[in-house]
Design a binder for these strands. Structure first.
Lengths: 125, 125
DNA sequence: GTTGCTGCAAAAAGTTTGCAGGACG
DNA sequence: CGTCCTGCAAACTTTTTGCAGCAAC
């Protein structure tokens, strides 16, 4: 049903070797090194397909363009640096967020984003 | 510097009387009842101005279009119902999220979103 | 050899901007 | 009455779609 193409291979490889989540244009320019004639449409189609296969995950931070990362990192959340505008991973998530919801609300999932300054950006701006 | 216009008055009134955060098209159609010739551009410009004045706040939920709500509700977070796709307010936020960040990261703000089923949508789908 | 995937270009959706005229203070 | 704001249309940005040819199985 789903074919394994050079384009998808390249996109997954790019995300695997990325130090942080990437935007579609970033993915395109990096993957184009392996597949020169790669186009935007293919990137978007591949991202959608890979997401459906649960191979990658979308990272959406308010006010920022959508980014993507591999799904091989397990459950975690993100820290967004207001200085360098990079996304960092927050390793674990010890919590019972369900308790925050009002009674009778069934909590199935959650998303947490922290904002601040990463070690390199403290004291600036 | 900032003028008080009929358009902004109408937009704020719409958001004040809204039961949940609204998208720009929703704001436009509701505010147009008070200001018939209201256009999209004005809505976007007013939303930006009101946001700069800290009168309203943007609510961004991954996979959903941006929504806006009045800033008069104090610090809180949101619950997104996977059934009816409506946004609910989570009253308070008892937290020490700062502890989640890795050492040397300075946490200045945070965002939490819960996903699940609201009371009306449980048992469906 | 099929059939799904790709690349290109055009289209859609959402948001921003330029400009002439009108409303606010 | 000067200036900021508005409405309209056009421009932009980001993502999606149509279609002929190509590549995966």
């Amino acid at each position: 049903m789903e074919r394994i193409t050079q384009q998808k291979i390249a996109i997954v490889a790019v995300l695997e070797s990325a130090e942080s989540p990437l935007t579609p244009p970033e993915i395109l320019s990096r993957a184009a090194k392996a597949v020169p004639r790669l186009g935007v449409a293919t990137v978007y189609r591949a991202l959608r397909a890979l997401r459906k296969e649960r191979k990658i995950v979308i990272v959406e931070i308010p006010g920022e363009p959508p980014r993507y990362e591999t799904a091989t990192r397990g459950h975690h959340h993100h820290f967004f640096c207001n200085g360098c505008r990079k996304v960092f991973e927050i390793p674990d998530c010890a919590a019972k967020w369900a308790e925050l919801a009002p009674p009778n609300f069934q909590v199935l999932d959650h998303e947490i984003i922290l904002y601040g300054k990463c070690p390199n950006c403290q004291g600036e701006r």
